[in-house]
Design a protein around this nucleic acid. Sequence first.
DNA 1: GCCGTTTTCGGCCCGACTGTTTTCAGTCG
Length: 597
Amino acid sequence: MIENIEIGKQLDEVGDLLEIQEANPFRVRAYRNAVRTIADLATRLERMVADEEDLTALPGIGKELARHITELVTTGEMGVLAELRENVPSTLVEIMRLPGVGPKSARKLWKELGVETVEELKSAAEEGRVSELKGFGEKKQALILSGIEQFHRHSARYRLDEADRFVAPLLEYLSAHAEAEKVEVAGSYRRRRETVGDIDILVLSSAPEPVMERFVSYPSVEKVLAAGGTRGSVVLRSGLQVDLRVVPAESYGAALVYFTGSKEHNIRLRQRALDRGLTVSEYGVFELLETPEQEAMPADAEAESEDADRRRAGRQVAGRTEEEVYGAVGLPYIIPELREARGEIATAEAGELPDLVELDDLRGDLQMHSTWSDGKNSIEEMLDGCVERGYEYFAITDHSKALAMIEGLDEEGLQRQFGEIKEVSDRHSEIRILRSMEVDILADGTLDLADEMLEALDLVVISIHSMFSLPAARQTERVLKALQHPAVDVLAHPTARLINKREPVDFDLEQVIACAAENRVALELNANPHRLDLKDTQLMLAKSLGAKVVISTDAHRVADLALMPYGVEQARRAWLEKGDVLNALPREGFLDYFGIA
DNA sequence: GCCGTTTTCGGCCCGACTGTTTTCAGTCG
């Protein structure tokens, strides 16, 4: 049993070790590309190998990579990695992760100082041996030492909601500067990735120096990593790195495209530009001028990087706005959430970009808790919150009795709750309260509520809250059994993961999705930023297998109803349209779909 | 090592900042 993530990790290490060996950089890139493809893949490679599917059909995976993957899956070992590890200590990979240390430095430290581990590097630096190396110096040595300290302190990426908390005051601070005409966050934050590694901020200004000065003087700044004329980089006391770029108006759109990424999306844009005699940089789109005489290039790997030197940028043709930049390479505007090199460029070219679901499309929220279990507000208070958001219906989904520690409801408790729902409903005709429950899937796949009560519910939402670490076969069986219960309508937070805290359960997601589709069970996209479950690539798989999705906040208090945008953003990253999302249906259509009276 | 209506060879994205240099390599995004 091997996860995609482990396969990716091993291939990434191959890339690292090749880099330290000074292998052909394009060969290294090939491994990086494969790692990315695997990271985006919702299907298990293990299963693809078992089914003898053609791995080379995957982007960036050719004969060799397919062979390595197949070998790893079938034998548990990857020959190419074992071989590399005999020649290069694999602990050098950690050294390479330190700031200011790349493959060349790692190699030099190893070859000339015999350093193989971070600890050995620490000793060498403390003894002043690092600064004596040619190409190294006092500052580099100090950077390495402080990097080792950080290395032990913070490694995880930040959840989007955590990043939001840091970003808002910083934006306010920068915007207050008179010379900052426009301030915008780019990077994976703007693409609304579920976690961000750092924050990229773009400022439009004709006076970069004072803006940079204000940036590095931000009170929460712990350390200034770099501060040049147009680029700066700091670490906040929270450990979050923030990069700032200051650009003039004629480059603002190009810079926004460039710093929003993703990297792979940008590479594809640039390739496309080259095909059209243009070159793209963060300064704009320019006509491409080739120098007249092209000398014969030696065929060996060392000469490859000189190719770029032959290109010369000419007249600027675009750059002021993002629309202009995309237009210059013959494309319509592509929204940030789609810029992940998952086919958006070809789709844009064909004029078939999806009409993505929007927050305003949602007509209801299908998971929330009240004081009847672990929620902080009454049913009527939750109702007020939903009415305020313009919803036409919502589901009250308190926990079932298996969650004893928060006093989940048993059959009798649920019956009493029905009484309160009726009372509240009688006072509020403007919105429909759905009688629902978040029913636990027990270890054997049966449900934590008697059949007659399941039948009495308008909407049956089921989920896993225990036995997270069952072996994959049993976990899959458990969920498949639950999905086949005729009363079930929604599978909530299907993988049960908590971002940065708990791994998803180990099961065959493809089988689970297929089973849900077959039994007309909707899959939840849990909008809580701790969960975002299913996640983007898994939702894409769900859509391709014909499953429907609902987006729910899982609110435990009225304020949590405001988490819905996090869900919608992930749905957009998954290319979901209004028609894929059941709670975008108006009240009558929604009730019809689930056969609710 | 991958890829392909300019295909099976010869390409493969682009620029800033730093530290160490004496004109640039390495790293980073």
